[in-house]
C-alpha cells in the first residue's frame, strides 16, 4: 500500500518540481514584464499545489497533512491575489507602453484606460528613464533580427546584460 503512496507522491513531487523549474526558466527567458509575470504566477500556484499534494500523501494520518492543507489553501488564496495586484500596479505605472515598444507590435488591450485611479503616467515612465530608453534601443536591435527563436534570445540576453551593466 505505501509503495503505491510513495510512487504517487514521487510522481506528484517531481512534476511539481519540474513545473516550478519551468516557471524559473520562463521568468528568465520571457522578453518583457507581463509575460514574465504570467510565467511566474501560473507555475507558482500550480507547482506549489503539486508539491504540497505530494507531501500530503507522505504525511500519514498525523497533524502534518492538515498543516500542509493550510499552507496550500493560504498559498492558493494569496499568490494569485499578489500577482493580480502586482500586474495592476505595473499597468497603472505605465509599464504597458514600455512593453509595447519591446514586442514591436500594438497590443490590442493597450488602449484600455485603467480604472478610476488616475493613470499617474509620470510615475514610472519619468522615474525610470534609463531602462525604458535602453529597452527601446534593444527592442529595435532585437526586433529586425528575429527569424529564429535562438537568435532573438542571444541579443535580448546581451542587451539585458548591457542594461544591467549600465544600470549598476
Amino acid at each position: 500500500m505505501d509503495l503505491l503512496l510513495d510512487i504517487a507522491s514521487a510522481v506528484l513531487l517531481l512534476t511539481g518540481g519540474f513545473l516550478v523549474f519551468v516557471g524559473g526558466v520562463g521568468v528568465m527567458r520571457m522578453p518583457e514584464f507581463f509575460t514574465r509575470m504570467h510565467a511566474a504566477s501560473v507555475t507558482d500556484t500550480g507547482g506549489a499545489a503539486l508539491i504540497l499534494a505530494g507531501l500530503m500523501l507522505q504525511g500519514g494520518l498525523t497533524l502534518v497533512p492538515l498543516k500542509l492543507a493550510a499552507i496550500f489553501l493560504f498559498l492558493f488564496l494569496t499568490s494569485p491575489t499578489a500577482s493580480y495586484a502586482l500586474a495592476n500596479a505595473a499597468l497603472l505605472s505605465g509599464v504597458a507602453t514600455a512593453c509595447r515598444n519591446q514586442t514591436g507590435k500594438q497590443l490590442p488591450e493597450d488602449r484600455m484606460d485603467p480604472p478610476s485611479a488616475p493613470n499617474s503616467e509620470n510615475s514610472l515612465a519619468a522615474e525610470a528613464p534609463a531602462p525604458k530608453t535602453v529597452a527601446r534601443k534593444s527592442a529595435k536591435k532585437a526586433a529586425p533580427k528575429r527569424p529564429t527563436k535562438k537568435a532573438a534570445k542571444k541579443p535580448a540576453k546581451k542587451s539585458a546584460k548591457k542594461a544591467a551593466r549600465k544600470k549598476s
Binding site: 488564496l77 491575489t81 495592476n88
Partner: peptide
C-alpha cells in the same frame, strides 16, 4: 481617497481583509 489605501483594488481588499483574522 487617492493613495493611502488599496480600497479601490477590489480583489486585494477582499482577500486581505478575509485573511487578517486567520
Amino acid at each position: 481617497k487617492r493613495s493611502d489605501n488599496l480600497r479601490h483594488h477590489l480583489i486585494p481588499r477582499v482577500v486581505g481583509k478575509m485573511l487578517v483574522p486567520f
